[in-house]
Amino acid sequence: NYSGVYDEEFFEELEEILILSDIGYESTNEIIEKTREIITRENITDKIQVKNAIKLVVKEILKKEDDKHRDIATPAVILIVGVNGVGKTTTIAKLANLYKGMGLNVMLAAGDTFRAAAVEQLEIWAERVGVPIVKNAQGADPSSVIFDALQAAKSRKTDILICDTAGRLHNKDNLMKELSKMNKIINNSSDHFNVYRYLVLDATSGTNALNQTATFNEVTQLDGIILTKLDGSAKGGIIIPIKNQYHIPVEYVGVGEGVEDLQEFIPEDFAEILFE
């Protein structure tokens, strides 16, 4: 019931492309059905027009009205959360560099007191970017580091305080409780600070990123997502079902290991690259 040249084989190929981009089975089906509709409705036969139809469908999903990119209002505190090794600490360095470049006073909080040399890692970044850092020794209570950093940022009239946290798998209840405690401490500072919580997701991950989003959102009420490692060959298609279900905006994408390797997320570009 769709027109002419686009037979089952064509849609099977499309299915393969979408699934190989980690879009997931459900969203893949949704995209295919919507594309079929457009092809039928507009009687499309031209290959380029078909491609455009698919991209349009994807862009629609990525560009929901209710999740517009939000500008940060200062003074702000940003809490960075996510599972192990996705790129949280590196992303903090990139954000600090970005905001500093805008002429803002930035401060970092070394809220990962668990992982070996996590504090030193952030310290090196702070030094390279040229921003102050509040820290404690490995093994210290992360909530108290956050608390101290909030006090310091307040008294020093910092514009943006960015808090690192230890990587944690969302299915570890004790670690999620610890995160919830940090989140509360940050919430308590909302008379002074505008509070933002960003989830860092690795573009290489599969559908597990959906579970990550669900649980971190429950615990920390996410304001945005940062999608890292897009410089790899993975397309980060998982962001499509995530947007579809949770309507959390993707604020930035990470495209490398240096401080400059951070870009704004542009749905149009993302959709283009997906079907390159």
Binding site: I19, L20, D22, G85, S205, G206, A209, S233, A234, I238
Partner: peptide, 10 residues
């Protein structure tokens, strides 16, 4: 990483 998606094989 066990959480890797379709790219794991590449």
């Amino acid at each position: 990483d066990s959480m890797t998606g379709q790219e794991a094989v590449n």
